[in-house]
Design a protein around this nucleic acid. Structure first.
Length: 106
DNA sequence: CGTATGACGAGCC
DNA sequence: AGGCTCGCCATAC
């Protein structure tokens, strides 16, 4: 069944909204939840698309890469860590978090 | 319509 | 641990 780009993004946003507060999920994990296994890049693409959209209902800051770090440019990565820190997610000196502790559904 | 690009990730070295 | 390569596929040009 053919899927339009709009519904693809909707699937991704929906999955992101399911991440509990104080938890983080990886791009690949979100892709799987959205039924897009192996297409982590699309998740990043969809989230990047939120910038212009200014949609606060999607907790984009809870999505990080498989290394437990932010994939954003330094400036934005700092904002992301700050938002997560507010929810209780800790980061080490290198800006990485322990997915075993804070990852969703460990 | 062909190429390049990117908020990724797994595998190798 | 850290860097490179390659597969992934919607978009941009």
């Amino acid at each position: 069944m053919k899927r339009t780009t709009d519904s693809l993004y909707t699937l991704i946003y929906h999955a992101v909204k399911r991440i509990p507060k104080g938890r983080v999920a990886t791009y690949g994990q979100i892709a799987r939840l959205a039924g897009l296994t192996g297409q982590a890049r699309l998740v990043g693409y969809a989230l990047h698309n939120l910038r212009d959209h200014v949609d606060q209902s999607v907790p984009w800051h809870r999505v990080i890469n498989a290394r437990g770090a932010s994939s954003l440019p330094d400036l934005d990565a700092e904002l992301q860590r700050r938002l997560l820190k507010t929810e209780g997610v800790a980061f080490d000196r290198r800006g990485r978090t322990d997915l075993l502790r804070f990852g969703w559904k460990k």
